[in-house]
Computed example of a mutant assay.
Amino acid sequence: MDIRQLEYFLAIFDHGGFNRAATALYVSQPALSQTVRSLERDLGTALFHRIGKRAVLTEAGSALIEPARAAVRSMQTARASVDAVQELRTGRIDIAAMPSPAVEPLTSMIRDFGGCHPGVRVCVRAAFTPRDVIDMVRTGAAELGLLTIPGPLPEKEVVAHPVGVQGLVLLAPPDGPFRAGRTVAGEELAGQRLIIVQRGTAGRAYVDELRERGVEFTVAAETEHRASVLPMVLAGVGLAVMTDSWRRMAERAGALVLDLEPNPVLRIGLISRKAPLSPAARAFLDCALRREDAAT
């Protein structure tokens, strides 16, 4: 049984006969009759009594009317939903993003995309390291991913699109130990209390490298929740090395944001699977790349 058979069956009932139904459906009467006979064979019973040019429902045919209408309506709804997704009137995109690029540039990307396609929902999935993002995109847990990485963007397992660069900054409380506006050398963090994040991130790699160079500091706190770093800095727990994406939020909250020296360049990449993208994901990617082209 398929939906076309049910549509033909309902048309015969609604129009009172095979000829009228064939005319309404723009098909030949023999083709219509053949389709209905096929449906009857599938069900193992006759659906109509053929009385001259009239078609009268059998008991089985009467029992089929309601479920047939429900099935056809469901299919029509499904087709409308697919059309809406194809035309980007509705839909959903899953994006795996590391915490820092999720602050920026992802916020601006979602804002720009939403302005063009307000009916498409963007769902941001948490990923803590570049490897997490790559794995989520590669396995299909997310269709797109956003990461920052100190080296070249990944190319082997996914398709990567550069969408900017970021540096690292030092977040400090307003009452010290460094004055506003100055650049802090890595060696000056000796003796300081630092808030560090998990391994695999650029901020963690920076402080680990300092320690390898002999710069001694105290780890005041270690957190996987990057959203907790700024409140801890403001509370005086310690200093934190974070990506530049946190600058605006930290300054608005009252923290000092100081440039670091030396300062590695972090590449920001928007990645996708090598398989074809959904219309919504393709539109999001195109919008993000246009935004990057305009910025450069």
Rank of each mutant, 00 (worst) to 15 (best):
A250Q: 08
L210D: 03
F178K: 15
G214S: 01
R213F: 04
V207N: 00
L210M: 07
G44H: 14
P264Y: 05
T58E: 12
R273G: 13
L47V: 05
Y8P: 01
Q5A: 12
Y26K: 14
G203N: 13
F48W: 14
A235I: 00
V241A: 03
K274H: 03
G119V: 10
A70G: 15
E40H: 03
G269F: 02
P162M: 09
D244T: 10
T201D: 07
V169W: 10
V85K: 05
H49R: 13
L168N: 10
V169H: 15
S278Q: 06
I93S: 03
L6V: 10
I196F: 08
P173S: 05
V82K: 15
D286N: 08
V197S: 03
I110K: 12
V237Y: 06
G238D: 01
K274S: 04
L147T: 05
F284R: 03
D83N: 09
G44C: 14
L258R: 11
G176I: 15
A295G: 06
V237K: 09
G114E: 01
A221H: 11
P162Q: 12
N263T: 08
G140Q: 10
L256W: 11
M98G: 08
T243I: 07
D244L: 04
D244I: 00
G114A: 02
T58R: 14
G115F: 07
G254H: 01
N263F: 03
E222F: 00
A84C: 04
D175G: 04
D112Y: 02
T139K: 15
R193S: 05
L277N: 08
W246M: 03
I3F: 06
S108W: 13
Y8I: 04
S245M: 06
T201M: 07
Q192C: 09
V85F: 02
E251T: 07
G145I: 03
V103M: 06
F9D: 12
A295E: 09
I65L: 13
Y8G: 07
V122E: 13
T90N: 04
D175I: 01
T129K: 12
V233E: 08
E188L: 10
E261Q: 07
M109S: 13
G91V: 00
V184L: 09
R111W: 15
L25W: 05
S272W: 07
I271H: 00
A31M: 11
V229M: 00
A255Q: 03
A202K: 11
I12V: 13
L147P: 05
E155I: 03
F217W: 05
L106H: 06
A80E: 08
V197C: 01
L39D: 00
G176S: 13
T58N: 13
R179Q: 08
E7T: 02
P105C: 07
G200S: 15
G200I: 14
Q166M: 15
H49M: 10
L189E: 00
F18G: 07
F284E: 02
Q34K: 13
Q192W: 00
S245C: 11
I110H: 10
R20E: 15
A71W: 00
V219A: 08
P231D: 09
R69K: 09
H49G: 09
A235D: 09
A295V: 08
V124N: 11
D244C: 02
S74G: 15
R204E: 12
A275F: 06
E59M: 08
L170P: 13
L25V: 01
V163N: 08
D42C: 09
A97P: 13
D14P: 04
E209G: 01
